[in-house]
């Protein structure tokens, strides 16, 4: 259960962190504010999972201990969410790939036999329904916008496609979670995710990239180089002044 909770917590924490990097730098004030809303939702979700994980441990640790005092190899998030923001198109494509998986994942997680997890999923699903709508619309706008935006968002999907396989490929602890009834059967949600992807990409007049070799490893702690830098920033204060209250 711990690894499964950390997967959910780290996914949302790291993606929220990335979106937070946009704050103050968005393409227009309204879009800036929209991205901060996404960040706040995701970080809020991650706190629910971290708090639950910390309680289950029963070792007196807190959400912050889990977020700030584990090293990269212990993080369980998918490689996709730690990818840099790049241009706005990369952020939109990354978020859409994540949201279109996250939405169906949470729908299934609402059926978890773990009540607390089902409740967190239910609350998160409302937020993520909006996230998926936001990113889908931006994929369509950019894809079916100008020549430049079309090629930028196509480029973004081409670059990020290799990270999407991991979302739908269960780590051992996920298989265990699914068979114990508190997790999600990724094979069952795959067709829903695939349909949504194809549908939105078609509306956006974009080419669906080939499903070639898919990267993996994030869920078991073998990350890209990016995560180390994220954590270097994120954990810096806590590490520089240990045992302090903030």
């Amino acid at each position: 259960m711990r690894d499964f909770l950390l997967l959910l917590a780290d996914n949302t924490q790291i993606l929220g962190h990335r979106l937070g990097e946009w704050c103050g730098h968005g393409p227009e004030l309204e879009i800036d504010m929209a991205m901060t809303n996404l960040a706040l939702d995701l970080i809020g979700q991650s706190r629910n999972y971290y708090q639950y994980a910390a309680e289950l441990e029963g070792a007196g640790r807190t959400e912050d201990d889990l977020a700030y005092l584990r090293d990269a190899r212990e993080f369980r998030n998918c490689l996709l969410v730690e990818q840099p923001n790049g241009d706005f198109a990369h952020t939109v494509a990354r978020n859409f790939l994540f949201d279109s998986w996250h939405y169906f994942f949470l729908q299934a997680l609402c059926q978890s036999n773990d009540e607390r997890l089902a409740a967190i999923a239910g609350k998160s699903l409302k937020e993520v329904t909006y996230h998926l709508r936001w990113s889908s619309e931006w994929v369509i706008r950019l894809g079916d916008g100008t020549e430049e935006s079309h090629s930028r968002i196509q480029d973004a999907f081409d670059n990020l496609w290799t990270f999407r396989g991991e979302l739908l490929t269960p780590a051992p602890f996920e298989t265990e979670a699914a068979s114990a009834g508190y997790g999600v059967d990724l094979h069952a949600i795959r067709p829903l995710v695939e349909d949504r992807l194809s549908d939105i990409l078609a509306q956006a007049t974009l080419q669906r990239p080939e499903d070639g070799w898919m990267q993996s490893g994030g869920k078991t702690g073998r990350h890209s180089e990016h995560l180390g830098y994220i954590l270097a920033e994120m954990q810096y204060v806590q590490r520089a002044y240990p045992n302090s209250v903030w």
Partner: peptide, 18 residues
């Protein structure tokens, strides 16, 4: 934002800047 030392501070700071 990216260096806020707790999750509670992080969301407060983000919401404030927003």
């Amino acid at each position: 934002i990216t260096r806020a030392p707790s999750l509670r501070r992080k969301v407060a700071l983000l919401a404030k800047i927003q």
